[in-house]
Nucleic acid binder design. Structure first.
Lengths: 193, 193
DNA sequence: ATAGGATGTTAACGGCGCTCACATTAGCGA
DNA sequence: TCGCTAATGTGAGCGCCGTTAACATCCTAT
């Protein structure tokens, strides 16, 4: 259905987020401009404004696809982790996602987010609920809220520190080792639940 | 020594980072432009380029002062924490810093950082060493590297999640409670060292 | 006293986000 | 089937941005 020479694009809204994600992957976050998105979609600089109120609205849409991809990567790592080892594998997947797609991850978490953007908050709470569910199943007797917060925070922080090069772990397997060690350092000796 | 009408500024280098920090506090990170910094310093748009190679160099300088301020806030919270409760108070200080100065915190940790900037990496490793030292004193028998990584990651992640509104904690004391609970959820039941 | 380097200015380039007036077209009721 | 309207895309233009180049001013060491 990719009509070529029509005045109307057909589905510019979706084409914009596709173009934005591509730009992000190829050239980093500084390359993500509305004008560049418009160019890539083969459309005039003002056209995206018919579908997105401003740059931030497009960014939120991109972030939302990021949240969904992150959720699917976590689920792929382990659908329902319960032991510390399984939990560590999900944590590693989280950090790997950040390192695989740094620009996308920074857009998702590194800048102030529009709390009024429904798509965005929905995708966010989905991640939150996912973590919460894991914790409740893995540690049924613990304070689920506190522990879920702690574990999400831990994994999220490890992702950011690795992303910023604050921790020295050059290869993916070194990252995996380091994340696994950190998780076990906090969880392994516990008798929780 | 604030000479007023001289052609040369006197200490434009320092004035730039001062102006940058002020802009950051007053109007957020989007307001941090080299031109705005120059205006505030009472100088032409090109003048800062005599002292900073580009925008990123100035940003790195600003980040470096942020790292130093963070370190001093942590030290003020507790000079040498060892119990989980003391550690939690330092963690709360870390998160409060992020919430007090969100734009600065995002500049420090939310965007790709120039690893070639000496001032910046020095300030970063100082924070890293600080955490490491705490952990070594508090848990002498633990794997210091893994545990330090885990604790920094945990606190850092909690800061970011609160900053992004991913966790619902509206007031400073709610934040403090939540952070404290998360820390205890992971540390309290341990017998480490 | 003066030469030269350090530091500042002015002007300009291209790119950006965004808006407005206008052009085209798709879809729908008569 | 025709024609109206709303949706969608265009083009020009505003002010801001980062950055550079050519030029001006002033400090300092000889």
């Amino acid at each position: 259905m990719s009509s070529k020479e029509t005045y109307h694009h057909g589905d510019l809204r979706a084409a914009c987020v596709r173009a934005a994600v591509e730009l992000l992957e190829e050239s980093g976050e500084t390359a993500l401009s509305l004008r560049a998105v418009a160019r890539r979609a083969g459309v005039s600089p003002a056209a995206p404004y018919r579908h997105y109120a401003d740059r931030e609205a497009l960014v939120s849409a991109v972030a939302a696809v990021g949240y969904r991809e992150l959720a699917s990567r976590l689920a792929a790592a382990h659908p329902s982790p319960s032991t510390p080892g399984q939990l560590a594998s999900v944590a590693v997947a989280y950090v790997q996602f950040a390192l695989d797609r740094p620009a996308l991850f920074r857009i998702m978490f590194g800048e102030p987010c529009d709390r009024d953007n429904e798509e965005r908050v929905a995708a966010t709470t989905a991640v939150s609920q996912y973590v919460r569910g894991i914790v409740e199943r893995a540690f049924p007797d613990a304070d689920a809220e506190a522990l879920a917060t702690a574990i999400w925070g831990l994994v999220h922080g490890l992702a950011f520190l690795h992303l910023d090069g604050k921790l020295d772990a050059p290869t993916p397997s070194a990252v995996a080792d380091r994340v696994t060690a950190a998780i076990h350092a906090l969880l392994a000796t516990d008798s929780r639940g």
